[in-house]
Every structure is written in C-alpha cells, then in structure tokens.
Amino acid sequence: MIDVALLDFHWTQLLQPQWYIENGGLWFIVFVVFAETGLFAGFFLPGDSLLFVTGIYSEDLVAKGLHINNTGSFLSLVILGVLISAAGIIGNYVGYWFGRKSGPFLFERKDTFFFRKKYLHQAKDFYEKHGGGAIVMARFLPIVRTFAPIVAGIVGMNKTKFGFYNVVGCFAWVFTMLFAGHYLQQFFLSTYQFDLKEHLEVIVIGIVLVTTAPVILKLVFGKSKQATPPQD
C-alpha cells in the first residue's frame, strides 16, 4: 500500500518544520541537520526553525524516537542536543573534507564568467582574519552554515582550529535553539495561555526573518558603501 501522505506531498513541505516531526521524528531531524551542515543540496532546509520547533516537542520526540518515557523536559533537551549536535559536527566535517579535496583544483582553475579565483583568496583572508569565530557565527546564519565548512576546507583552514570551533559552534547553535523553543513555549503557555504549537507558521516566519536579517543588511549596506563615490 502507498502511504497517502506521500501522495499528498509537495516540495514546499520541506520548508515546514512540523512536516519533519510528523513524518520522520527524531532521526529525520538528525539527518536534516547533517544534510544542511554538510551537503551542498541542504542549504534550503529549515535548520533554525526546525531546532526551535524540536525544542517544543522535545519530550514526545525522545519518547517516540528512543522509546524512553518520563525523561523530563531538561533531560530530553540534553539528549536531543547531544544527538543533533553530533550530526551537525559530522556534517561540517564532511563539508570541510569536500572543500579540502576540491581546493587544490579550484586554486589552479582558470577564471571563467561564473568563477573568479580572487574570491577564494578573499575567503582565505577572511578566515585568517576572523579565525574560528567565522565557523561559530556561520552556524547561526541560514545558507551560510552550509557553505562555511566547505569554504574553510577549500582555503585550507587549520584542521585543529576548525575541529575545535566546529564543536563549539554546533553545541552553541543546537542548544540555544532547542532551549529557546522549549522554554519560550512553557513561558507563553503558563503566563498568557498562548500555545506556540497552534501558531507554528507565524513562528517559523519570524525566525527566518530574524536569522536572515543580518545577511540582508550586510548585502544592502555593503553594496551602498561600494556605490558611494569617494569624497574630495
């Protein structure tokens, strides 16, 4: 028999955190985080909002995914945090490995309309200037977190430095989003009787706006500065 849910599938559901929770649960979420942080094709996946919503459903996900009941909210969050962080760390290592393997080829490649070697050198300068902080910051920026480890590998970032900040950045990102989702749900429910589970679409939109705002502002103001002619 063919699952009716599969027949009704539409690609836009891939942008909805609730879809992953309802159709795959804990292990689907683990895979999504791995894919978003380690595979080129994962840049569109809903990392921040998925982790936030995962925090809201933390106890249910642990009970169904690991068959462990009555763990309590804090322990459930810790279990989820460790499992998901492991997936994110491994994902970044995969991206870094791919970058290391493709880096020499790209540095020797001739410039084309779509490829400019100078951008690789600029990226290398950026990592040398900001160091591991760039890896940590990238975790909190959609799309950027997918390509940051790949670029780090391409420009030859030190393995030890990358490994340390990869672990620190991933734990910081995962636990921040999980705890924010869970405890904000508890706060709004107990204080205002407002259930975030009934307004997930609005929450997802809000998270997307907040997390993408720095990138958009950087692009807008960066271009405006370049367009401003020097004063005499």
Rank of each mutant, 00 (worst) to 15 (best):
V32G: 01
L141H: 08
F107L: 12
P214C: 05
S49E: 03
L80Y: 06
N92Y: 09
T176K: 00
A152P: 07
N166F: 05
K223T: 12
F52A: 03
F140G: 03
L75P: 05
E22G: 04
F98S: 09
K117S: 11
N70A: 08
T212H: 04
A41S: 13
V53P: 05
T191E: 10
R116Q: 15
M1A: 14
G153A: 04
I207V: 10
L189H: 07
G81R: 02
Q226K: 15
L80Q: 02
K197A: 01
L15T: 10
T211W: 00
H199P: 04
A227T: 12
Q122Y: 14
L189D: 08
K161D: 09
T112W: 07
F31Y: 14
E22D: 15
K129H: 12
A138S: 15
K118D: 15
L217D: 03
L66Y: 03
F187R: 00
A152L: 05
V210H: 00
G206I: 04
R109E: 10
I207H: 03
L45M: 08
G47F: 04
H182T: 06
L66D: 00
V220C: 01
I135W: 07
Q226G: 14
N69D: 13
A172N: 04
I203T: 09
E22I: 11
A213T: 08
Q13D: 12
F44H: 05
S102Q: 14
S73A: 13
G47R: 03
G65P: 07
W173V: 01
T112F: 06
E128R: 14
I21D: 02
V174N: 01
Q231E: 14
F194L: 11
D232V: 13
L178F: 06
T12W: 15
L6V: 12
K197W: 00
L61G: 04
P229R: 12
V53Q: 01
H182Q: 08
I79K: 02
P229A: 12
G132Y: 08
V202R: 09
A63L: 06
K161C: 05
Q16W: 15
F140W: 06
A134N: 07
V167L: 10
G163W: 05
E198A: 09
G81Q: 01
S102N: 13
W173I: 03
P46T: 08
L14P: 12
F34V: 04
L7G: 12
Y192R: 06
M157N: 04
L45P: 08
F126M: 11
P104G: 05
K197C: 00
V168D: 01
Q13Y: 15
I79D: 04
D60F: 11
Y165E: 04
N92W: 07
N92C: 10
P214A: 02
I84V: 13
K124V: 10
I90G: 03
F43M: 09
R109A: 09
W11E: 13
N69W: 13
V174T: 05
A5L: 12
K223S: 11
W173F: 14
D60I: 10
V78E: 01
M1C: 11
E201T: 11
L120I: 12
F98W: 12
G103M: 08
Q185M: 05
V208F: 11
A35D: 04
L83V: 06
G163A: 12
F40R: 01
N158C: 05
F40Y: 11
G72H: 07
I216L: 14
I84S: 00
N69P: 06
V167M: 06
D125W: 11
